[in-house]
Amino acid sequence: MFEFPEKLYVPMEKWIDAIMDWILVNMSGIFDAIGGVILKILIVIEQTLLWLPWPVILLLIGAAAWRSMGKWWHGVIMAGLIFLVGVFGYWDDSMSTLAVVIASVAVSLLIGFPAGIIMARRDKVQATLQPVLDAMQTMPSFVYLIPAMMLFGLGKVPAVFATVIYAVPPIIRLTDVGIRGVPESVVEAARSFGASDRQLLFDVQLPLAFPSIMVGINQTTMMALAMVVIASMIGARGLGLEVLVAINRIEVGHGFTAGASIVFLAIVIDRISSAFARKQQKHLS
């Protein structure tokens, strides 16, 4: 009965396309530079991971789990899960996925950490950024693939780009929350003794915000891992591609082992990083 009047149609999508076109034409230099940096980071990480012999990587994972979680058998279990990934035949794929995750997390921290600090310092910045971050997190992750592809084409660089956009909000948010959560009495005491903004940040705010920041890193990492699987559609390769192939060919076994490998990777990353985060809270309560 009540059709929405067509007269009210606004060609929003055309405008956005126009903006994208304009960016593509006029700002390609900037994006080439960004892409170049991302690529360099990526190559270093990937080559390191593939160059390291697999027993060494398993040992490193085991040691990190043991140190962070406290028991030697934690280390054995975590290393065992990754060993299983190799047994399934996805060692190189998983290292490739891991490389994109690590690169994405690194870039996310590079952006998110300073952004979080600025956000904590300025109420106006927080008021502006907060809804943007909310929107970024509610947006379906596939959507980020489109601008990433347009700006960087197909491959691992747009994958990292899309992953960063998807995974950066938690680290920004939790850096902000952590710094704002530092008790006013401690901040005031530091100020009363003549601490500069810098001294306040490094001696007081960041150390006390550290547990919160670690939670942010953990969340960012988990979101990056989820996104990297999706980003295999635009060339991230790795484990995500295996899942994609399995879906296309309707190969249940293939899909199961590839999917399980992603889960194992996720468990290992999550457990180790959240255990490190917990360890930092010891004196701070």
Binding site: P183, S185, V186, E188, A189, A190, R191, S192, F193, G194, A195, S196, D203, V204, P207, L208, H283, L284, S285
Partner: peptide, 21 residues
Amino acid sequence: LMNFRRRSTAMVFQAFGLLPH
């Protein structure tokens, strides 16, 4: 002001204001 606070005054707070770390 910063230099003045560093040299000339020191404050003690009801909530202590100690650095927990």
